[in-house]
């Protein structure tokens, strides 16, 4: 074998090794990826107060458990491998132990990564205010909530730390009996913190009022709706620069609804 052949052989060997390496790397990545791909997919889980958006939260959380250790009520727990979210991230189950809304919010400041953000609790005030937490939103099922049957129950209303604000009792006439009133709990998404004290207090076998992640149940109206009766919202119109003007070019279509002439011809 001369030198040229030798060089070719080593080059061939090198290329083979590179291809092999890429192959191993891909196999490993695919197997590993397949193993973990489900982990990030489930987002029905309630996070501690001050948690940033779920998508960023699972990136940021380093799974140290300092928030869990700080919680005086054992509300928070770190997810295990069979939990519905990434193992090691903090969550709580409102029906078991809700968030008791400590005024000093001990769970948030220890967070070292910013997954729990103090600033999210300070948007309206100097100090952290637990009432600014948005851990979730209470949703009532009117079929299983006994108040909707006409039975008087205001357990959730009384359990709510923002009673009269996050949950109000609305009265409606009970047509069935003709002489009673329904006393119906109603949740306001503007004030509800998602602490879960209502879910915890609910008297039905499985809770008729339940906390869900806000994103999951709230929907989104989109920017193109502007409330004409709301002065603040109306201002947004002035900020819009390039409006696609709707040009009223009806020459191609038959405008039979607004053109009444044909209806009144004699033939």
């Amino acid at each position: 074998m001369n030198i040229k052949d030798d060089a070719m052989a080593t080059r061939r060997e090198a290329v083979k090794n590179v291809v092999k390496g890429i192959g191993y790397f891909s196999i490993g990545s695919l197997a590993w990826g397949g193993l973990i791909k489900e982990s990030g997919s489930v987002d029905f889980v309630l996070r501690p107060p001050g948690a940033i958006e779920e998508k960023d939260f699972i990136k940021a959380c380093i799974k140290c458990g300092l928030c869990v250790n700080a919680c005086p009520y054992d509300t928070l727990d770190l997810a295990s491998t069979e939990s519905s979210t990434i193992a090691g991230t903090p969550f709580f189950k409102a029906r078991e132990i809700p968030c008791y809304m400590c005024l000093d919010v001990p769970c948030v400041p220890p967070c070292p990564t910013g997954a729990l953000d103090i600033n999210l609790l300070k948007q309206k005030s100097e100090e952290m205010n637990i009432n600014e937490a948005r851990m979730g939103l209470a949703v009532i099922n009117k079929e299983t909530c006994v108040a909707f049957w006409g039975i008087q129950c205001d357990a959730c209303y009384r359990a709510c730390p923002l009673m009269g604000d996050a949950i109000v009792i609305k009265t409606e006439r009970n047509e069935r009996t003709g002489k009673h009133a329904y006393l119906i709990p109603d949740v306001s998404a503007d004030s509800c913190t998602g602490c879960g004290l209502c879910e915890h207090a609910c008297i039905t076998e499985l809770p008729a009022i339940k906390i869900f992640p806000r994103k999951m149940v709230m929907g989104k109206e989109g920017n193109h709706y502007i409330k004409g009766w709301d002065a603040d919202d109306e201002k947004r119109l002035k900020d819009i620069k390039n409006v696609d003007k709707y040009t009223d070019d009806n020459s191609g279509a038959i405008d039979y609804l607004n053109n009444n002439d044909d209806l009144f011809t004699d033939d």
Binding site: I36, S39, G40, A87, G88
Partner: peptide, 17 residues
């Protein structure tokens, strides 16, 4: 995936937790 891929499986932190 947008989350810490090894820490989902990390036996070190699993054992500690």
């Amino acid at each position: 995936f947008g989350f810490a891929a090894f820490d989902v499986l990390n036996p070190i932190s699993m054992l500690y937790r």
